[in-house]
Amino acid sequence: MCRFMYELKTVIRKLFIACFLCLFLISCKDAKTDAIISLLQKWDGKEILFPKSPIFTIKGKDTILYPILDEYKILTYVDSIGCTSCKLKLSQWKEFMALVDSVKSESIQFLYFFYPKRSADVCQLLRAEDFDYPICIDEQDSLNKLNDFPSEIAFQTFLLDKNNRVLAIGNPIHNSKIKEIYLKIIQGGEVKLDGEKNVIQTKVNVDKSVISLGHFDWQKKQKASFVLKNIGKSLLVIQDVNTSCGCTEVTYSKEPVRPGDSILLNVSYKAETPGSFNKTITVYCNANSSPIVLRITGDAE
Rank of each mutant, 00 (worst) to 15 (best):
S176R: 01
I26Y: 13
D161R: 07
S234Q: 11
Q222W: 12
I12S: 01
V283G: 04
K229D: 04
V241G: 05
Y77Q: 09
L88F: 08
K233V: 05
Q187Y: 03
Q156M: 09
K59R: 12
S225D: 00
T57P: 03
R13T: 03
N242R: 14
N144C: 03
T280D: 02
E196S: 09
T273A: 13
N286D: 11
I185P: 06
K42R: 14
P51I: 09
H215S: 03
C245W: 08
G214N: 00
I185M: 11
N278Q: 01
P256W: 06
L294D: 06
K233E: 12
N163K: 13
K104V: 04
V103Y: 01
G260P: 02
M5Q: 14
F96G: 10
T63R: 12
L39H: 10
N147K: 12
V283S: 01
G60A: 09
G45I: 11
F149L: 01
G214Y: 05
N198V: 05
S53G: 09
I108L: 00
Y115A: 02
D240T: 02
F24E: 15
D141F: 08
C86S: 15
C28T: 15
K179R: 15
A35G: 05
L21P: 07
E7P: 04
D148I: 07
K184W: 00
I153F: 00
L213S: 04
G188A: 13
Y133R: 02
L264W: 05
S102V: 05
F4N: 13
E196H: 12
R127Y: 01
L126V: 00
S107T: 15
K42A: 01
I36W: 12
A18S: 13
E129V: 10
P134I: 04
A300Y: 01
G188L: 02
D138W: 06
Y112M: 13
T248C: 07
V293A: 06
L88D: 08
E71F: 09
C22A: 15
L146V: 09
L143Q: 00
L265S: 08
R127L: 01
V293F: 07
V227F: 08
E249T: 14
I153R: 11
K73M: 07
S209Q: 13
E106W: 04
L160K: 03
Q222L: 14
G260T: 03
D34K: 12
D34L: 11
S290D: 05
K270T: 14
T251K: 11
Y252E: 00
S268L: 08
C136T: 07
I37G: 09
Q92V: 10
P256S: 06
A128D: 02
I12P: 03
C86H: 03
I173K: 05
K184L: 12
Y72R: 08
Q109S: 11
H215P: 08
S85W: 07
L49M: 14
I292N: 02
I292G: 06
Y252L: 11
Y269N: 07
C19H: 02
V191G: 10
K117W: 03
A128C: 00
T202W: 01
N266W: 00
I17L: 15
C28K: 14
K87G: 08
D44E: 15
A271C: 09
K52E: 14
I48Q: 12
V191W: 06
S262N: 13
G189I: 00
K14G: 00
Y182Q: 06
F149C: 07
I185V: 15
S105E: 15
E47S: 10
Y77T: 12
I37A: 08
R118G: 08
D161V: 05
S80K: 13
N171C: 14
K184Q: 14
I58A: 00
G189W: 02
